[in-house]
Design a protein around this nucleic acid. Structure first.
Length: 345
DNA sequence: CGATACGTACGTCACATCTC
DNA sequence: GAGATGTGACGTACGTATCG
């Protein structure tokens, strides 16, 4: 039974959003593959998570103990979603969100958008985080393509440890920053495997920088890589929806081909400025520039979403680690209490 | 079986931020 | 400061689950 809820209060009042964002906000309440069962082991009874005040939370442990703990995301650190436009509040019951919901409708969204500042990029947040927390490597421009491995979270000063949750699940934290969560048996809890993460290692050898992606005339996806080669996505995988492929674990396959003589659609050699004369040529140039911009932005949006997912994964793994740490410390405290004040009956 | 809700991925725009 | 890049917001399409 999970009572911890993540409540999203968006100031511009919009309801729909990109999936990744919704995913990031509601992940903890899901019971599906992406859920983190460990988080469900505590129930938050009441919360004083007012803005600016330390998030001291009343946590009820599975054993029935009730303790006051500080939030796992400490305030000095870049918080989960720091955006003024999205307030992620982790509370059980809320009067506060009703309040914010009320105010949502009052202010014009566009005005709010003007007023509110944008939060820094994920890369920046992670870099700031890395400077706050020693041992957290900075996120690099190019990272390993595969599986969006969070490069930092688990590399905090946590010894190699194996923890067992109250449901018998094991969380192993290795020195290399690998968090592995596994089930003791075949109890059918599927969410755990989803959190298995590997943070170690350098980018795969030969990892290459994709410079441009474009749809070729035959409908295949082509990536232009350094070295005068073209990586072409196979059509079989191209046909399947990407999210289907992701769900089934199918990876798209690619071929490296010699570049064709003609540039793919959307990639047009820019004419030299001096060669433009007529208004028609100028218009064509403007169109080309726009198409190029759209194409780049398309790719940038994809990359941005990928990074965002990775970022969310990072934060989730961080939460998982800190929850475990927190639980362990609480247990330790209880043990010490018992030792210091043994029962006298 | 059609309607509806929900989840996911994507493209585009606008604007913030970065880089040179 | 201009251009490039990153990202929030929005709209859309498609697949799947649920319901009557």
């Amino acid at each position: 039974q999970m009572t911890m809820e993540t409540i999203e209060s968006r100031q511009d009042g919009s309801i729909t959003d990109s999936v990744a964002e919704r995913e990031s906000v509601h992940m903890h309440t899901q019971t599906g593959q992406n859920s983190i069962p460990t988080l469900a082991q505590v129930s938050v009874a009441g919360s004083g998570t007012g803005r600016g005040s330390p998030a001291v939370t009343l946590v009820q442990l599975p054993s029935g103990q009730t303790v006051h703990v500080q939030g796992v995301i400490q305030t000095p650190q870049p918080s989960v979603i720091h955006s003024p436009q999205i307030q992620t509040v982790q509370v059980a019951t809320v009067a506060e969100t009703d309040e914010s919901a009320e105010t949502e409708g009052v202010i014009d969204s566009h005005k709010r958008r003007e007023i509110l500042s944008r939060r820094p990029s994920y890369r920046k947040i992670l870099n700031e985080l890395s400077s706050d927390v020693p041992g957290v490597p900075k996120i690099e421009e190019e990272k390993s393509e595969e599986e969006g491995t969070p490069p930092n979270i688990a590399t905090m000063a946590v010894p190699t440890s194996i923890y067992q949750t109250s449901t018998g699940q094991y969380i192993a934290i290795a020195q290399g920053g690998t968090i592995q969560i596994s089930n003791p048996g075949s109890d059918g809890v599927q969410g755990l495997q989803a959190l298995t993460m590997t943070n170690s290692g350098a980018p795969p050898p030969g990892a290459t920088i994709v410079q441009y992606a474009a749809q070729s005339a035959d409908g295949t996806q082509q990536f232009f890589v350094p070295g005068s080669q073209v990586v072409v996505q196979d059509e079989e995988t191209e046909l399947a929806p990407s999210h289907m492929a992701a769900a089934t674990g199918d990876m798209p396959t690619y071929q490296i081909r010699a570049p064709t003589t003609a540039l793919p659609q959307g990639v047009v050699m820019a004419a030299s400025p001096g060669s433009l004369h007529s208004p028609q040529q100028l218009a064509e140039e403007a169109t080309r520039k726009r198409e190029l911009r759209l194409m780049k932005n398309r790719e940038a949006a994809k990359e941005c979403r990928r990074r965002k997912k990775e970022y969310v994964k990072c934060l989730e793994s961080r939460v998982a680690v800190l929850e475990v740490q927190n639980k362990k410390l609480i247990e330790e405290l209880e043990t010490l209490k018992d030792i210091c004040s043994p029962k006298t009956d």
